[in-house]
Structure formats: C-alpha cells, structure tokens
Design a protein around this nucleic acid. Structure first.
Lengths: 236, 236
DNA sequence: ACCTGAACACCGTTCAAGT
DNA sequence: ACCTGAACACCGTTCAAGT
C-alpha cells in the first residue's frame, strides 16, 4: 500500500435514499443507535443535515429503511441451496435472522419497534411470507396457516432479540472466550437470586453455563415445529 | 380557601423513587414514550428536573423501572385462583402479559429494549421464573427445562409485542368497532401486496379479517405447549 | 440529605437561500 | 430538482447554590 490514501472517497456521487440508508447501517453498526444522528450521517455523506430530508421524511423512516435493508438481506440470502425439507428451510430463515441480530446488535430493538408500529412496513410481511411458505409446504391445513406461521415468527423474533444482548456485550462474533465469560456472568448472577422468589431460575442457572446459544435457539425451533406437526397433523 | 393554594394537591409528600416511577407510567400511558421527558415529569411532581436525579440515575433506569413495575403487576396478578393445570397456569401468565401490553402500548418496545440490555434487569428473570415453574410442574425432564421455558417466553414476548401495535392504533381496549376496522385495514393491505413476492401472505389475508387476536394468541401458546409435551414426553 | 433551576451540550427538523 | 447551513424548539444531564 504505497499511498496512504486517507480516503479517496469519491464523494460526489449524488445523494440517494440508498446511499443514505447504507451509511445509516454502517453508523448503527459502528457507533450504535445513539450514534446515528443526522449531523453524523451528513458528515459521513459530506453534506448538510438538511439534504437528507430531501430523500427521507425523518428519523423514523430512516430506521425503518435500515431495518428493512438488513432483514431483506438476511431472509433472502440463507443457504441458497435447496433445503432437504420445509423444516430445514424454516431453520435456514431462522438462522439468517439470528445471524443478522448478531452482526447488527441494534436490529433486535428495531424489529420490535417496527413491528409495533402501524402501518406495518415491509419487514413483517417479508419474514411472515418466507416462513408461511414452508408451513404450507409442510402440509398444514389452510385453516391453521396463520397460527402456525405467527407462532414461528414470534418465537424467532423473541429469541433473536434476546440474543442481541449477549452478542452486544460479548464482543464481536467469534470471540468465543468473551462469550463464555458472559454466560458465566449470567449464570453466576442467576445463582445469586433470592432463593424464595427465584427457585426455578436458580435451578436452571447451571445449564446456561457453557451452552451453545445457537443450538439452544434451534432446539426451540424444533420444539415449535413439533408442535405444529403434532397439533395439525398434516396429511402426507 | 383563603390562602391562594392554587393546587390543593398535597404536593408536599416527599419525592421518592416509587412516586417518580408511578408518575412515569402515567405519563407513558397518557402521552406516550415521546411525552415522557424529565421536564414534564418534574412538572407533574411539582419539582425541578434536577430533583429526579437524586432518586434515579437517568432515563434508562427510569424506563427500566417503569417496565419492571408493569410487568411485575401483570405476572403477579393473574387469576389468583388455582389453575386447573400447569398448562392453564402458563396461559394465565401469558394473558397477563398480553393484557399489560394492551393497557400500556409502550410496553412492547420497552420489553425488547430491556431484554436486549445487559446486565438483565429483573424483568426477564421474573417472566422466566413464572413460566419455568409450570414447565417443571408439567413433568418435563430437567435437561429440557431451559429450552422449554425459553421457547414459551420468546413466543409470548414476540406475540405480545406485535399486539401492541394493533391496540395502539385501534384505540382503547374495548373499542371493538375500531379493532375490526383495523384488522380490515391490515387484511386489505395484505391483499394488495405483490402476488409474485407475497403469495402466502395474500392467501392468508382473509383469515385475518374478523379473527380474535386473543384467541389466536392462545392458539399459539397451545401450539408451543403441545410441542413441549410431544418432544419431551414428560413422564406421568 | 434532599431539592432548585439555570446552564451546557447536544438533538431532530425546518426553511430561506442558493445552484 | 436538489442541496446548504443557520436557526428553532426542544432534549437529557450536570452542578453550584440553597434549605
């Protein structure tokens, strides 16, 4: 690397919704939700705060668009290869979202915010659709499609959300040591709870130590899939 | 009232963490998350913004405490009567949280935020504990306690979160007409989606119209409970 | 110990003015 | 049509000063 090109950034490609959202995601990833301000975003885009409003109506839309971009990538990507079964396809979608919340710790909170906003954006339908198709493929009777797909979606979003906490505090993905340390901290904290008020949580505390989050998450998916199969007895 | 006490409210009971959190919940309920400011809170408590900091470290703790207060009430209350079965007890806990998100539309977002914050507050363990005890009572083998309880918690939080949107936009609880109108809007919106990209969601759109959210939520609980029973074959 | 309220360092958003 | 950047109306938080 001869020239230490501080930033050859071709700065003058014009502003666009797409560039703005891309920069917003980068900012969220690097400096977190509190770091995403219109001033910081404008600086990164070499413009003024006002310019952004020509392309985006406000911060709510900006966060919505950033969430949508990341979710779309997560749900679309996945192991493109054909899954062996609808069940495996559900697992692929689920893991895509799981990994996304690990790569983008701000995603969990944003998902909750987006979903509890009306009118729904494109985020909820996107996830719902990719799960629902597999439910359909599993042979679940039509009357139960909605219930089964919703249950899957809610479990996935809940679990992925909780995971974001761990990832955020356990450092970057792959830092296994930190992660083990973190689980150890949780486990120890739980063991320190009031024995009268939290007997169950204390009893389970030890299982948390050294467990594999990802596997635990998949075990939950299997549990819901089992419920769908057992309850709706898809014919085949 | 000879003396000009413009406000008969016994204003001089001293400030306390409890009073502050109570006022915060009221403010969240009436003017929403954006309306909860230290200035508004101070006015309601007939004091200055600075005074609050003597009892609470900052806004994050304030929101956490408000969430904890509401969740504790929801999980503790419930139909105190003995449930017929552990399954029914799970349903009671679930409905308690469901109703809480309906009464406090801000709760869904806050739950996600609290859960994805480290260290966990008291909110997650409280919910986890009340569900876990029932899992235990169902006879699930100890090795699966964590998986089963987590799955229940994640489903409940995900579903309750989504519901908050509907409640918030459908107006106060009990406004059945508005709610039906809202579901009709969702259904129509889904039917308008791109047929190529959203075939499943479109196919299901009609089921949404006129369905009972609460029953749908309980159907999901039953689904997860069925999965737990089928997969872990509790001995009995 | 507890409260007051002005002051600080920010925000999101708007809008006249430029090109 | 698109961008600029100063200005407005707020925020959360701090802290000297009071009681």
């Amino acid at each position: 690397m001869a020239s230490r090109s501080r930033r050859p950034e071709r700065r003058q490609e014009p502003l666009s919704r797409e560039r703005i959202v891309g920069a917003a995601v980068e900012l969220l990833d690097t400096v977190g939700e509190r770091g995403l301000t219109f001033r910081a975003l404008a600086e990164r885009l070499a413009t003024g705060p006002g310019a952004i409003y020509w392309h985006i109506t406000g911060k709510a839309e900006l966060l919505g668009a950033a969430t949508d971009a990341v979710v779309t990538a997560a749900v679309t990507a996945g192991p493109t290869g054909a899954a062996d079964s609808p069940q495996d396809a559900v697992r692929a979608v689920a893991l895509g979202l799981w990994d996304a919340t690990e790569a983008h710790p701000w995603l969990a909170t944003q998902l909750a915010t987006q979903l509890s906003r009306t009118p729904w954006g494109t985020v909820a339908p996107r996830i719902f659709e990719s799960l629902g198709r597999q439910v359909q493929a599993m042979g679940v009777p039509e009357a139960h499609w909605f219930t089964a797909s919703s249950a899957l979606m809610h479990y996935i979003l809940g679990a992925a959300g909780q995971n974001a906490a761990n990832s955020a505090s356990a450092g970057p993905v792959g830092a296994d040591v930190d992660r083990d340390e973190f689980l150890d901290t949780v486990s120890t904290a739980w063991e320190g709870l009031d024995p009268d008020a939290y007997p169950f949580t204390r009893a389970v505390a030890d299982q948390v130590r050294g467990h594999d989050d990802r596997e635990q998450f998949l075990a939950g998916i299997t549990l819901v899939l089992t419920g769908i199969t057992a309850l709706h007895r898809p014919g085949r």
